[in-house]
Design a protein around this nucleic acid. Structure first.
Lengths: 219, 219
DNA sequence: GTACGTTGACTGACTAGTCAATCTATTCAG
DNA sequence: CTGAATAGATTGACTAGTCAGTCAACGTAC
């Protein structure tokens, strides 16, 4: 995941990685459709043809970036789900992971959201299966919580999962396009907010609610 | 808004409208980038050049479609906000309007979401101001509710607005890409669900909650 | 006859992907 | 140790195709 592996001049640099990291920057800056393969090569400090030595097509560069990250996320969700935690805390962990992913590499998350996740027409189509898996995993957490009686049974779990994921993604979108204030304290607060908001509506009024984490201090 | 104004052969057809309606279908089917201007002209049963008689560019066709609809939505939100209603019902009206927009013309909403709203990199950039206005109007409803004491004050209104809008848009996305079940009863239920979920978390536990609408029957 | 609507072949600009040539690292026979 | 052979990495000029936008000509209503 690290983008700081090597500078362009480093002789030991793994050129494939160099190209991928450059592509993240170029895609984030110009968008996938608006940029040319030459821009990626230039950004990476590498010849045009080398991109085609490592990748079959421009598309494959984006595919690789998306899958690398998305699979890490799916893995994380599965691990969180396997742990013995109340549903609210599982969702908290997932929100945390996604927000931290943005904090760690905003360009990469911008590319994934703008060019893949929210572009199900063009690119997302290819990856609809992967994307769907995330929704399904979240939906399973909700279903389980409903069966335990922690969440209201009258809210369809699939819809709840979409609403939850959609709320998080929309906040990242807000940061990406300067519609929401950025910064450490906002990131931490957003993690709490999204869970508080969505779980607040999902939980059964009578259900035993675990002691909730403190409200992070306002910025 | 009506797409059924006239068949391609109708001599009285307003060609400009014919082109716009055809563009909705083509953009929805193939995506803005993947389709050619010739596809729009063919779909409208009109010569290639006529598209450029009515519109300065391919972009302007999409701009027109987006602005036509988005302005109706902004107007609706303003009208709802002006009415004397509890915040929850205002949000309910907004969710209703958006879901009904999808129900009424799914192709148009698909185009707006996929090509503009969620493509802030390319197209959305132009319309970021319009898009932002919607978030701000929703944010104002939340702020007012917090001042009245109906909503918790500790949740930033801008974030709450993004979460609310994001949840709705994600459900439309779910329908658009067959990730969620479609159909009248699901649409009605989704309107209720998103408000129940988000407002459930926003409302102050102690606050006087107006008698809420009945839960629509499950599908 | 004039103004506007309509046509569709054409052009000019652009770029993904190819490929033959060149470079570099490694190996190993002499 | 030498240097020739090999494989893989790297280069960038070039090709083949695409498509947005133009424009000169034609149609038609009044």
């Amino acid at each position: 995941m690290s983008a700081s592996r090597a500078a362009a001049g480093d002789p030991k640099a793994d050129k494939r990685r160099l190209i991928l990291d450059a592509a993240v920057r170029v895609f984030a800056r110009q968008g996938f459709h608006a940029c040319r393969v030459a821009d990626i090569a230039d950004e990476a400090g590498v010849a045009y043809g080398l991109v085609y030595h490592y990748f079959a097509s421009k598309d494959e560069v984006l595919d690789t970036l998306f899958l690398e990250r998305w699979n890490v996320m799916l893995q994380t969700i599965r691990e969180v789900d396997a742990r013995e935690l109340p549903a609210r805390e599982k969702l908290q962990e997932i929100a945390s992971f996604i927000v931290d992913s943005y904090r760690h590499d905003p360009d990469l998350m911008k590319v994934i959201i703008v060019e893949v996740t929210r572009a199900a027409n063009s690119f997302g189509q290819t990856h609809l299966g992967q994307i769907r898996q995330a929704y399904e995993l979240i939906g399973e957490i909700v279903t389980a919580a409903q069966q335990e009686g922690a969440f209201k049974p009258e809210i369809d779990a699939r819809f709840a999962a979409m609403a939850f994921y959609g709320a998080i993604e929309q906040m990242l979108t807000g940061w990406i396009f300067d519609l929401l204030p950025r910064g450490e304290e906002h990131y931490e607060r957003a993690k709490w907010l999204v869970v508080e908001t969505v779980c607040g509506g999902l939980e059964r009024p009578g259900a035993e609610v675990p002691a909730r984490a403190d409200v992070p201090a306002p910025g």
